[in-house]
């Protein structure tokens, strides 16, 4: 068992409001870990701790310990550029840049200084192939990424991450803007991707968590109420609150 992300006594405050309370969890390598819970429970906030995206919000204070690949990522001295290269993020709404498809995929490589056209071309082919877009898009790499369907846009956003060779993919409700069929295909893609990457997904869709995740955490009001293998969480929850939530008694 190999833990790639570990948190210990993690607290997070937005000003005076405490959004995460004493969170401790382990994310295992090459598994899909799902975070579920009602809106406002802190699951997105927790996800955004892992690549320090909360830094963009003024007045956020984080205490405790978060380790990615054994290295502490909280604190002022952390190299955010290499952290975010290692821990990529897919957002709720597909957010390709208003550039060409090609430029979207190589964006990460370009900002990290790659100029060699051959390397870029290869990365485009490899990344787009990984998300099963290359066959469809190889002849229109120079068209605007915003002209794609939402599903294709979300795949492109995943390809954009894969190009910088991350280890962890954080997904913040990646299917909430997609229709059921597109959702199903993205889920298949995630199962394929977990062979090479570790995935942490936030979802409000319990069935989705049950379908695709190996480990599952239930959050409520900033607390990680219960964390364990998905099958056990959904069949034999230990905590009454988890049971109430997954049986649909609230949420």
């Amino acid at each position: 068992m190999n833990n790639i992300i570990t948190t210990d006594r993690l607290d997070l405050y937005y000003g005076a409001f405490q959004a995460l309370i004493n969170v401790g969890l382990n994310v295992e390598q090459n598994k899909i870990t799902a975070l579920i819970g009602p809106s406002g429970c802190g699951k997105s906030t927790l996800l955004r701790v892992f690549n320090r995206m909360n830094d963009l919000i003024e007045g956020v204070r984080t205490t405790g310990s978060v380790k990615v690949g054994g290295e502490e990522i909280l604190g002022p001295g952390v190299d955010l550029v290499s952290l975010r290269k290692k821990v990529g993020m897919v957002f709720q709404r597909p957010n390709p840049f208003p550039l060409t498809i090609y430029e979207n995929v190589v964006y990460g490589l370009r900002i990290h200084g790659e100029k060699d056209r051959k390397v870029l071309d290869q990365a485009v082919e490899k990344s787009l192939s990984s998300v099963l877009l290359f066959a469809d898009l190889k002849d229109k790499l120079s068209s605007n990424a915003l002209s794609l369907s939402l599903e294709q846009q979300q795949r492109l956003c995943i390809a954009r991450l894969l190009a910088v060779l991350p280890e962890v993919l954080l997904m913040d409700e990646p299917c909430s803007a997609l229709d059921p069929l597109a959702t199903m295909r993205i889920e298949e893609l995630m199962l394929e991707l977990k062979k090479r990457y570790t995935i942490v997904i936030v979802t409000h869709n319990m069935q989705q968590a049950a379908r695709i995740s190996d480990e599952c955490g239930f959050m409520l009001l900033g607390e990680l109420v219960e964390f364990g293998p998905t099958k056990r969480i959904f069949t034999a929850p230990k905590d009454k609150r988890t049971e109430d939530y997954i049986t649909g008694r609230f949420g």
Binding site: M53, L99, R110, I111, H112, C157
Partner: peptide, 25 residues
């Protein structure tokens, strides 16, 4: 805002985000 977030999440610096994403947009 999600253009900027997407860029920063890929490890871009603030300046890279401004001149590669924000200004073209």
């Amino acid at each position: 805002k999600n253009y900027k977030e997407g860029s920063l999440a890929l490890g871009a610096t603030r300046w890279q985000t401004i001149y590669r994403v924000t200004l073209p947009a």
